[in-house]
């Protein structure tokens, strides 16, 4: 639990470095998609449908003759974005609610925690689908649903840490120096409280990537013809017996990205001395 410096990054466990490198690689792929992708991801070529992997189309083509590799690369943009934006939203909301509930305490704490209990009492996936079916499918609906449901874990984690830190010696020292409660909370408690939440957010990102592609697979997320891994799997499942490459490669991509975040989370947990 300290400010990260280069020396400390060098002491990260090997798993975290491998995971971090994989995440960075995926981010590079996503950012440089226009240069990496050999073909347009949505342009159809009905003369070249369902080609198996070959020298021109390394991962084959789909039922509309689109290049699977190009769709995979462009899909990385969306899937990575869904994971990272969803985590950013839930992390921020959850941290604010958890810190305020833990620090202020009393009636406000009770109110927020009962709200949390109600949210948690619904099965996560069912609640997400219910909200999205009201809001309509698409990325905006996905993010709003995530914001409404996903904050609870972060609120719990940060509140628990805040309750401990509120009684800590350095908070007493900060009070003895004349700081206001708001400053103590923001500058001294929250930075110390978020370490376990940061670790959790990495494995949470995996959840949102899987969730985003699952919803797209079900037709509730990103819509065809946009290149997204869940959409690709949904489209490919009809051809799974004849064109295995349409579903297998996006499946691998999801697994690899999820693995990257999981490894990084484990390594980070080791460094920060927390467990998820």
């Amino acid at each position: 639990m300290s400010g990260a410096s280069l020396a400390e990054v060098a002491r990260l466990p090997r798993l975290a470095i491998v995971g971090g490198a994989m995440i960075l690689a995926w981010i590079m792929v996503a950012l440089l998609a226009p240069w990496f992708a050999p073909f347009d991801p949505i342009e159809q070529d009905l003369t070249r449908t369902l080609l198996p992997p070959n020298l021109q189309h390394w991962l084959g083509t789909d039922n509309y003759g689109r290049d699977v590799l190009s769709r995979l690369i462009w899909g990385a943009r969306l899937d990575l974005q869904m994971g990272l934006v969803a985590v950013a939203i839930t992390f921020s909301i959850g941290t604010v609610i958890g810190a305020i509930a833990g620090y202020v305490g009393g009636f406000l704490d009770t109110l927020l925690m009962r709200l949390l209990d109600v949210t948690i009492s619904f099965p996560f996936f069912v609640l997400m689908i219910a909200i999205i079916s009201v809001l309509g499918s698409g990325l905006a609906g996905f993010y709003i649903a995530v914001a409404l449901v996903g904050w609870v874990s972060y609120a719990r984690i940060v509140r628990a840490r805040t309750l401990v830190l509120r009684q800590s010696d350095f908070v007493l020292a900060a009070r003895s120096l004349g700081f206001r409660p708001a400053r103590i909370l923001l500058r001294h408690i929250v930075p110390n409280a978020i370490a376990p939440a940061v670790v959790f957010s990495m494995s949470d990102a995996v959840l949102y990537i899987l969730l985003g592609s699952s919803l797209s697979y079900l037709g509730l997320g990103v819509e065809p013809p946009t290149a997204e891994w869940g959409v690709m799997i949904a489209e490919g499942q009809t051809y799974i017996a004849t064109a295995w490459w349409m579903t297998t490669f996006p499946g691998f991509a999801i697994a690899l990205l999820a693995l990257a975040f999981s490894l990084f989370a484990d390594g980070l947990a080791e460094v920060l001395g927390t467990s998820t």
Binding site: M1, G3, F170, A173, R175, G178, F179, R187
Partner: peptide
């Protein structure tokens, strides 16, 4: 009054300093 007219020093400096803030930042904050 706290910090400005009366300063307080505690027994255990390890636990009374914020672990994630440099000492310069902590002094500067005051």
């Amino acid at each position: 009054v706290r910090g400005r007219r009366i300063g307080m020093v505690f027994q255990n400096p390890t636990s009374h300093l914020d672990p994630v803030m440099s000492i310069g930042e902590q002094i500067g904050e005051v």
